[in-house]
Nucleic acid binder design. Sequence first.
RNA 1: GGUCCGGUAGUUCAGUUGGUUAGAAUACAAGCCUGUCACGCUUGGGGUCGCGAGUUCGAGUCUCGUCCGGAUCGCCA
Length: 585
Amino acid sequence: MYRSHTCGELRASHIGQKVTLAGWVQRSRELGGMTFLDLRDRYGITQVAFNEEWDANLLQEARKLGREWVVQIKGEVIERHSKNTAMPTGVVEIKSSHLTVLNAANTPPFTIEEESDGGEELRMKYRYLDLRRAPLQRNLALRNRLNIEVRKYLDKDGFMDIETPFLIKSTPEGARDFIVPSRMQEGKFYALPQSPQTFKQLLMVSGYDKYYQITRCFRDEDLRADRQPEFTQIDCEMAFVEQEDILNTFEGLLVHLLKEVKGVHIDSVPRITYSESMERFGNDKPDIRFGMELANLNSLTQNHGFNVFDQAETVLGIAVPGASSWSRKQIDKITDWIKRPDIGMKGMVYCKVNEDGTYKSSVDKFFTQEQQAKWAKASEATQGDLILILAGEERLTRKAASELRLYIAEKLGLRNPETFAPLWVVDFPLLEWDHESERFHAMHHPFTSPKLEDISLLEKNPVKVRANAYDLVLNGNEIGGGSIRIHDRALQSRMFDLLGFSKKEAERQFGFLMNAFEYGAPPHGGLAFGFDRLVAIIGGAEVIRDFIAFPKNNSGRDVMIDAPATIDEIQLHELKLKSTAKPNE
RNA sequence: GGUCCGGUAGUUCAGUUGGUUAGAAUACAAGCCUGUCACGCUUGGGGUCGCGAGUUCGAGUCUCGUCCGGAUCGCCA
């Protein structure tokens, strides 16, 4: 062993011991006849002292060291003259007797500290250096902790971890697939799984009635702060269960994780329906850490001669607590924000509910005090609040109001990352109309079962059919989703019909699954958690990149290894591929 | 594919109305310094202003194009 202790463990109780430490040079402080060296590893930092009076040559050696050199130090643990209470190891230091340089290092392009001075791009390029930083190490440790706790919980409940293949077949529904050309079957292609969906259903048919896997999924779509082209799911499926069983099992998992890892106790996980969520929050993943719910003001605002309201499909109000004192300038800033092209509203009406009980709005000309009082009542605004009102086309307005609600909450500091407010959103619609392809799309996926009581609507009013589908939402982020599946060949065929698949096409794409259903498929269902997102949110962040050791950037590139990259002509030839891409540069 | 923001020293940034030799902090190097812990002090080196055109007597600054990065809409069953 190169070391007897780590850099994070020495305390007063070790004083007098001869120890050997190994680690990276964090920084050194030279004070003429003496030098202090901060030695770092992932467990902490320990100060090493060199002194002319102890060993002048050794001091000279120590002065040659640079940041991030890898060194081994032998010496005695001594009590410090001046202690540093800010450091866990701050009462002791190493009185050095031997110094071995294990490896010299170039000066790193950014500082390896709690807060680095490097920009994101640079840190990505030197990811192995960024990963030395304590915040990243904490994030990966949190990820590891959660991974283990997930396994503990599911294992205890009888779940079996079963691996499923990565080289599978491209399917038409859902996201774009990543494609892998086959060498042995020339002209044919594998696809990487968007999720192990069909395999876990087959495992149910095979009788593995409680399955889970923490596994990679791949989707070739544009990225966001909370989306990577390859990401990790906690993928689960159960047989002989109803929706209620699944909800109970997996809210139990979340409660377990928050308790074990964060020490946070969640009493209950509320459930609301999709339509209620859209009504109250304008959103299918509401952040319920705060109120400010959307109030429909249609009947209270229309037919009073104010054109904008009269012509609007929907008028929505949000009561901002304690904001009646906001200045015109502050409100204008919000109006500007709501008019940004990606929000897309044309304007915003405000109504101040003054402390003295009077009302002051930007539309006083059209509405009396009494009428404004009704708005306040409807949006649950009390004295000192400010009502923000948006009007326009239903879909756009509801979405904008939802964004506005989050924007204001952020401004007011109501989105505390240390508060955890999970909920289930249930009863999602089964289908949605896709204007582009002019056909129905499965909102969840094509294997989701419709609610029994809605099956009669399948033919005459498909958009009204609700599914046995549910999402688990945490602090305004979808962290998991699933459904009770169809386990009956006839119903599954009918679904494919509705989704516009020909019999032949359905047979070609999903014949294996439908065949399996004819050999004794149990009722089953499940869900999948977005593990990266879950880790990030529990870690108090929304950008998942820093919770993944080697993530891709916004455009799907790994800037460290420079992937994706072109391949040799020989490789292309072997795969019988020809690139039609225009050579760049 | 669209929109917005950004690209200047190793790094993070400033750079006025287009005008002299492009600055600061930090990092780095050298020297001084015996209780520092973001040590301090002195000195020094360090620039293809992303790239390419254009406007102009003159461009880091204005215009167009392009590349790269971030955010976001579409997209993500």
